[in-house]
Design a protein around this nucleic acid. Sequence first.
DNA 1: GCAAAAGTGTTGTCCTTACACCCATGC
DNA 2: GCATGGGTGTAAGGACAACACTTTTGC
Lengths: 211, 211
Amino acid sequence: MIFGFDENELKILLIRSDLEIFKGQWSLLGDFAADNEELDGAAYRVLCERTGMTDVYLEQVRTFSKPGRHPGGRVLTVAYCSLLNIEQHKLGKMDNELHWHTVKGIREMAFDHKEIMEFSYTWLQKRIMEHPLGFNLLPEKFSLRELQNLYEAILDIKLDRRNFRKKFFSMDFLIDTGEYEDDVPHRPGRLYQFNFEKYELNKRRWTGIDF
Amino acid sequence: MIFGFDENELKILLIRSDLEIFKGQWSLLGDFAADNEELDGAAYRVLCERTGMTDVYLEQVRTFSKPGRHPGGRVLTVAYCSLLNIEQHKLGKMDNELHWHTVKGIREMAFDHKEIMEFSYTWLQKRIMEHPLGFNLLPEKFSLRELQNLYEAILDIKLDRRNFRKKFFSMDFLIDTGEYEDDVPHRPGRLYQFNFEKYELNKRRWTGIDF
DNA sequence: GCAAAAGTGTTGTCCTTACACCCATGC
DNA sequence: GCATGGGTGTAAGGACAACACTTTTGC
């Protein structure tokens, strides 16, 4: 389950199913783990192989085990969620079988992947309130407007711009780069970076965001 | 991972490991899932077989996959958490290989079960704030003091008695049975039941507890 | 100079916290 | 009647939500 954020929408990377009975349908990226392979490692391997990226956020979500899930027999799926910067991925190798879909627009998927997708999306909505994961979806430098758009898209809500600012500034994990947006047809906003080191040092005291 | 609550402490049901290299150590209850078995069903089967109980709360926590976890080779463990009334269990069949341990007192466990236990405990602490799971650990009728002891034990914090009452009454999911405690050397407290039906109807609006 | 979004502070309301006294029961 | 915990209300402080105007840039 690979999430990205583009054009103010949450997106997900899917591949065309290679099975005859799911012809034309889309499915999540996955693979079978080798016999001696740790699952975290296997998930990371698939992620890197398919996207050509490294250093990507990855976390286990849940294991799905309903019988009849897979036409090939009994298959367990341990779902992982990864968040990456979609721009960075697009610049990498193109794979014609892969496509970014908006999360809201997906109608049908192969296997029980729709169910897995929905579970993971709900999981992400919750998780993003507890940990500052969202920054993995943004470029290194971002405006507060982009950050707000991200939260609004994931949580599917509207937020007050001023209160949003206050909240993030009071967390004190944003570094003001001193730089400004470019190529915008209005007053450019400041660009910030997320202070991952400071967050790591202080995360014991962190209790989450609360909109 | 079977949790119970007794003598104002959170407890966990363990079994003596039957493997030679873990001789004397305690381990979580578990079993291998049959080839055509759904995991939720397998976990429930083991739970029922071992405790003789039915109608027990059960939920998947996480999958553990580190290689070298199990001396028999590569084994995945999908951890489940169940919450049950310890009194009810004690009244059932006794199994000499099973023992209730306080969560705080456990030093060493077989396999990587200590890690699984700690992960599940942290998971439970979080989960109990989001959903009213705790009632599964109490008898059908309980006093507010017992309920508070439960939350204090699980979260390992002290709470103000008056504010605790206010909070739970304002949720409006407690049914006053009109009955009172018995055999206490002081003024007996009222006994309540949790209104599971009402909670089910309203849980969409539920956003969790917040101490 | 006009459109569009950036940037900033204050006020009222609600929720949370802290806290003290009387009550019912067993012994 | 004394010890023990049950049961209740209030006041202060902090957090959140609502809200409007000025500033900067592109065109």
